[in-house]
Amino acid sequence: MRELFGKPLSDADLDAATRALAAPIIEVGLDRVSLLLVECGGETMAFRAADVAMVIARAPRHRVPHRTNSIFRGIANHEGELLLCFALERALGLDAGAQQAGKAVPGSAVPNRPLVVIEESRRRWAIEVDRIFGVEDLDAAELRKPPLTLAAAHNGCTDALARLSGREVIVLDAKALGCVAQGAIR
């Protein structure tokens, strides 16, 4: 049994698991909120699960000539849909993540990190992160307004603060993130 659980997941299983993980979670009741926790640039952050369309463990990428920059990484194919991919740490202005973003996997010109696909105003943006932890529920009342210093940082993409498992986690504003992504490809 120990060996069974220790066995690495196949790509298909990992894909299925991440898909299940990212399936939109209906927030149960008005007083609860579900957050998808991720790690990026050495920081733990969260997306509201309601903003997340799907999570993709890995998807083949391609840079776009004269468009790809430090924020816009290129396009990725997921089941025939070509998604626009963005480096979260760069979109938030976290230089710490820059090294990670620039690290390509062998045989690929673009790092193949997990993608969190957010949807706002019927537009999808695939956001590259370093690691996906999972979904946690908490009382909506536990979400706190970020201090001015934080709200002004991260390109205005910080929506709230939450304390999860003893860690302070910033909750990202999908709409603001979409604006930053849009600005990066113009």
Partner: peptide, 26 residues
Amino acid sequence: RSLDRRLGKVPHISSAAILDDGAPAL
């Protein structure tokens, strides 16, 4: 495949396609 309209006209590129191995090509 059309490129995403949000990208506008990309210099030198007309459209995209997906190869047999699933990789995007321009």
